[in-house]
Every structure is written in C-alpha cells, then in structure tokens.
Design a binder for these strands. Structure first.
Length: 180
DNA sequence: CGCCTTTGACCCGCGC
DNA sequence: GCGCGGGTCAAAGGCG
C-alpha cells in the first residue's frame, strides 16, 4: 500500500483534473506534524465559503498503515483484547452548513455521543463497503457553529462509490484554504 | 425488505 | 480503585 489515500474521491486509477497548484490540504501530509489539533481556528479572512485545514493527530503520521486486528466480530473468546493499534487519523475543519460532506463513499452511522465542552454531539460513521474499515467522526464546533470538524481514520481499500465529478461538487460546496 | 439512524448500555483507558 | 469521558455495540424503529 502506497502512503495514504486521499479522503476525497481520488480513484487511484483516474487522475484528478484539478490543477496541481491548487494545493490540496492533503498534499502536505508529511510536513506538518504539530499537535495543534483543532486548536487554531483562525484566518477567517481568507475563507469566504469554507475552510479546510489538515490536522494531524498526535503526530502519528509516519509508518505505514497498520493492520488493526479487527477483533473478528466480537463473538469469540477474546473480544477486543487484541493490541490496540490506532490507525492514523486525519482531521479537517470545513466551514459548511451541512454536517456531512458527501465525499463519495457510503457511510453508516454507528454512534453519537455528546462531547464535553461542546454543545454539539459527535457522530461516528463507518464505511459500509465490505471489508473496508474506515471510520470518520463528524463534529460541529461550539466556538463557531459554522465549522464542522471531520476526522477520518483509516484508508479506503476500494474505489469510490459515486462518480468522480463528485469531487468537483465538493469543491463547489467549499473552498480549500490555502495559505499561498 | 434492506439499509439506515437513533439511542441507551457497555467497554476501556486514563487521571486522580 | 474509582469515576469520567470517549468510543462501540446492538436492538428497535423509520424510510424508500
């Protein structure tokens, strides 16, 4: 497996039409490993419609995707005793009216929890594709309810479920924040 | 009928 | 050890 797949519909076969210099926030994955998870919501001035920021959780960027022992359907003896290896997680902040960005994959909600110090609940989603264990969390920020924080965990092992033009659709919904 | 959301319970790690 | 908070499970119900 080669590095990390994008979270948005970038099929590995077909290249995106986007101009290279549009500098997707994902491009920089190996650069910024600061721990500033969701701590720096700023630079609103550059963001007329949406803000996307790439965030890294506890610098766990390096290393290849670790196969998490997916506990084989907790029906057996040792339920989830397997060593807990967290997959790397990636978070984005998007400024959006809707909580759920349609990123082309099919998600099933499996939980919702209220979070401390946050008046909005956090929702937990799992990719419904068979064998794909990707999860994501979606949460609206209290300090700025127009901001939605989406956290992805894992890498999709299958092509996108919806047509590619979807990405363009997303870009219409929001504008990628780029510092340059 | 199949897939999805909702929601309370349960599990687990961590700090005190 | 205990309590808290975050993450997951699974039953029940809704919807197309």
């Amino acid at each position: 497996m080669e590095n990390y797949q994008m979270f948005f519909p970038v099929s590995s076969t077909s290249n995106m039409e986007l101009p290279r210099n549009s500098q997707l926030p994902f491009d920089n994955f190996h650069g910024d490993t600061s721990n500033g998870l969701l701590s720096d919501v700023k630079t609103d001035k550059f963001i007329p419609v949406a803000e996307v920021k790439q965030l890294v959780e506890n610098g766990r960027f390096v290393g290849s995707e670790t196969e998490i022992k997916s506990t084989s359907a907790g029906g057996d003896c040792c339920k989830r005793k397997e060593k807990k290896i967290r997959k790397p997680r990636y978070a984005f902040q998007t400024r959006s009216q809707v909580d759920i960005l349609d990123d082309g994959y099919r998600w099933r909600k499996y939980g919702q929890k209220s979070v401390k110090n946050n008046k909005f609940p956090r929702s937990y989603y799992r990719c419904t594709h068979q064998g794909c264990n990707v999860k994501k969390q979606v949460q609206r920020l209290t300090k700025d309810e127009t901001v939605v924080l989406t956290t992805y965990e894992g890498v999709h092992n299958h092509p996108i479920d919806k047509p590619m033009d979807n990405f363009q659709h997303i870009l219409n919904q929001m504008q990628i924040y780029t510092p340059f």
